[in-house]
Every structure is written in C-alpha cells, then in structure tokens.
Amino acid sequence: MNTQVATTRTITYRQALNETLRAELERDEKVFLVGEEIGVFEGSYKITAGLLEDFGPDRVLDAPIAEEGFVGAALGAAMLGMRPVVEIMTINFSLIAIDQIVNHAAKMRSMFAGQVSIPLVIRMPGGGGQQLAATHSQNLEVWYAHIPGLKVVAPSTPADAKALLTAAIRDDDPVIFLENLSLYSAKGEVPDGEQIAEIGKAAVVKTGTDLTIVSYSRGTTTALEVARQLEAEGLSIEVVDLRSLRPLDRDTICASVKKTGHAVVFEDDWLSYGIGAEISATIGEGAFDFLDAPVRRVAAAEVPLPYAKSLEKAALPSAADLARVVREVLNLSSTPNDK
C-alpha cells in the first residue's frame, strides 16, 4: 500500500467506488465501464452517477439486459488489451453470465499457455436482508472463490473499496469485485490520493487476545460491532477482515488464531461448503495445536431466503447470533436477551 498519505475524508462506500471509477477512467483510456442502467439511470445503486455525462457513451456503455452477452463481450475486449469494468446489477444475475466467467474468463490464460491475459473487473453487490426474496438476496461469492484463475475481493470499508478497486482495475487477471447492498451508504475515512491495495492480503482490523472473528464484506462491520460490544463486557476480540476471498491469506488467519486460541467465522452465505468451511479447514490445518475450542461458523440458514420479514430475519446471521456463539465458544453463559 502507498504510504504517503496526507489527508483523509469521510465518504460513503458508494462515493469511494464512484470516485475510483472516475479516477481510473481519467488515468487510463483503456478503461471503460459497461453494464445495465449504468449510464442514463446512473446505476441501480447510483455507483456510476455522473460518469456518462463526463466520459461519454464510449467509456460508459449502457448494455441491454443480456448478462451473458455483455460480460462475454467485456472479456473479449479485455483479450485485446482493453480494461473493462463490468457492473452486474446484483450477484444473483451473474448466474446468467457464469459460463463466460467460469468457463472462459477464468480459463483462458492457463488454457492458452499464457498467450493472453484478461484484465477484466466484474463489480457486483451481494446481500440479503432487504426483503428481496429468494432470487435477489443471495451471497454466491463462494461460487467464484472456488474457481482457479479468478481473483475475488470483498472490501468492507470505503477505504478498501477504493484501494481494492484501483488494484482490481490495474490487475491483469479477471477480478470479481464483491460489493454489498447494505454497505453502499456506510461511511468511513478514505485517504486522498492514489491508493492501491495488495490483492490476496487479509487485514487484522481490530486486535484482541481472547478470540478471533474472521469475516468479510458487510460481515466485518457486524463483527466489529460485536467485538466492541463484547469489549465492554471485558472480552478481547480480534477481527480478521479477509478482503480477498481468492487468493486467501491463510497466514494472517492462522497467526491470529495462534494468538487467541478461539475462532468464529461470520459469513453471509449458506453454511455447507461455504467460506467458513474453507476458513475452518485452514485453521484446523494451520493452528490445530493452538485451538482451545472447535471453530464455529455463523452462517445463513440453508433455505431459499423467504420474503416475509419474520422468516428472513430468522434465516440471516445477525450480530446477536454472532455474540451468542462467541460466548459459547469462550464457554461463557449467554445473556437471555440475545436473540
């Protein structure tokens, strides 16, 4: 990371993304944006506000509803050296483009013996909890994190949104850039000037000695909230923000658990075969002798997410669920008002 930080500003995650896209469009004429409703409509979540006006329709390309087509077309442009940044309205709709992402973008460099590289970024938000029902509330990041050839990053703060998006756009490989519906309006301090994160590195975003919570994206914000709340009860919680789901920074995870002896993974996806499964296996392999309790996962109930608020709330992992499990792991009695 660039260290000559002079000043910072408090801005939203949305604004950090918008400013970064603008800066990269200005810096490199090979960068262009493509996606549904990103121009005239300024993006479903207004991430691309003002960009069509300033950069014109060749750089900010409105696409029809044809995810497979325009993701594949962006990939093709990347093969010829362009640096497309695709917006897919939500991760749910990426399933229509998954063949181009998994069978093509991820494979080309290896399959063609390094003759071509794919500097493609696919930005898309995941997330549930807004009563968007089963098809519009999914956290499918693990599908992409599973695929060799892809890089998958998941910033949890506005500062990381900026630094990881800059890194993703300048990266020569296909990068899945995971955003989250509930983070867009979150505010945080963002350093001015060029910031480039190193993809593949996790961060300890809060230090502690009793237990490690591992999370990513919006989960990290909940983890921090719970850690602070438990701090008031005298527990010292460390929070590891994965930032990169592929590659995975196993060293940072295990180093933390070696120190604390306890780990809980907080994830928004479904439990079986999820992000937490990989983290738990990593800790089992890399920090087994240091563990004082089994690693636990707090994940979504394994059900297509219902629309009704009561059911949705029950199915999604909450701060209260996380606090309860942290106490269980630390073998403390849980207070009755948790759930």
Binding site: L271, S272, P294, R296, R297, V298, A299, A300, A301, E302, V303, P304, P306, A308, K309, S310, L311, A314, A315, L316, P317, S318, D321, L322, R324, V325, E328
Partner: peptide, 30 residues
C-alpha cells in the same frame, strides 16, 4: 399473521431426506 419461524424449512424439499439442514444461524451443526 406472519409465517411461523418454526416453518422456515418447511418447503425446501418435497420428499423427506436424511440429514437435511435445519440449523438456524449460529446453531452448532455437530
């Protein structure tokens, strides 16, 4: 009334199946 939380998993599968997931978030699976 709102749907009952106890019915969360009610419609996931048409036929009963061994080991069908039924854990709420944070519930231990083992």
């Amino acid at each position: 009334p709102e749907p009952d939380v106890d019915d969360l998993f009610k419609y996931v599968y048409a036929s009963t199946v061994a080991n069908a997931p039924s854990a709420l978030p944070g519930e231990p699976v083992m």
